[in-house]
């Protein structure tokens, strides 16, 4: 997140998109190993000692300088959990350093009052409650068996079981007509090209 411009000056990159006079950005990373994630690094999120990165500090400094207000959208960011005192923060506590005196609005889950209170006390925010996300089972029941076979197929090493699973998967594709593929499977059956064509069908159903 640091680069050197044409004149050799070192600069920090602040990511985001501008929409008129609104600047939209993802909260900077507190610590993250990306695809190499093993859960260890994000423990730093609640670490009471570990300071935020230079990039994190620079991002909020930039927002304070260009903006009239900061709006955090969504619940449980990282800013209000940065090191410092629990209440009555001083100028040496990180949330205070970062948010400074810019007005701070926080759109927060109305069902999380304890951590909402932390956001209010430690980052001087005004909370606007948002509704909870509703959880529904979005997975169609009739694809349950197919899904199980596919999962097993991805792990299975034994050639004879793999062979068997290819048949079972194609049977399920026929039965459920997922993505309208049943006709193609029937044609493959008639031509006796089931196993040659399997890979293609398999990729197709996995890219729903």
């Amino acid at each position: 997140m640091v680069y050197r411009d044409r004149d050799g000056r070192r600069k920090i990159v602040i990511t985001g998109l501008k929409f008129g006079n609104i600047y939209v950005a993802v909260q900077p990373k507190r610590g993250c190993t990306g695809t190499g994630c093993d859960g260890g690094v994000c423990k730093v999120l609640h670490d009471p000692e570990c300071p935020p990165t230079h990039h994190y500090l620079a991002t909020y400094k930039y927002f304070r300088e260009i903006g009239d207000v900061i709006v955090h959208v969504g619940t449980h960011g990282t800013l209000e959990f940065l090191p410092g005192k629990n209440v009555g923060l001083s100028g040496r506590c990180y949330p205070d350093i970062l948010i400074g005196d810019i007005p701070h609005i926080y759109i927060y889950n109305s069902d999380n009052p304890p951590e909402g209170t932390v956001a209010r006390r430690r980052s001087y925010s005004t909370l606007i409650d948002h509704m909870q996300a509703l959880m529904v089972d979005a997975f169609p029941q009739e694809l349950e068996t197919l899904s199980k076979y596919v999962e097993e197929y991805l792990k299975e090493m034994d050639p004879s079981r793999r062979h068997q699973l290819e048949h079972l998967i194609l049977e399920e594709v026929k039965r459920t007509d997922i993505k309208g593929l049943s006709e193609r499977v029937r044609e493959m059956e008639e031509r006796g090209t089931l196993h040659q064509g399997f890979r293609e069908i398999f990729e197709d159903i996995r890219n729903v």
Partner: peptide, 30 residues
């Protein structure tokens, strides 16, 4: 309410909790 807050106006407090639970008229936006 966010627009109201932009204007520096007051956001009244209210009860928290799940919108689907409880008798207390829980609402969001406060």
């Amino acid at each position: 309410r966010v627009l109201r807050a932009f204007d520096g106006r007051y956001i009244e407090p209210g009860p928290s909790g799940l919108i689907t639970r409880g008798e207390g008229g829980y609402t969001t936006y406060r």
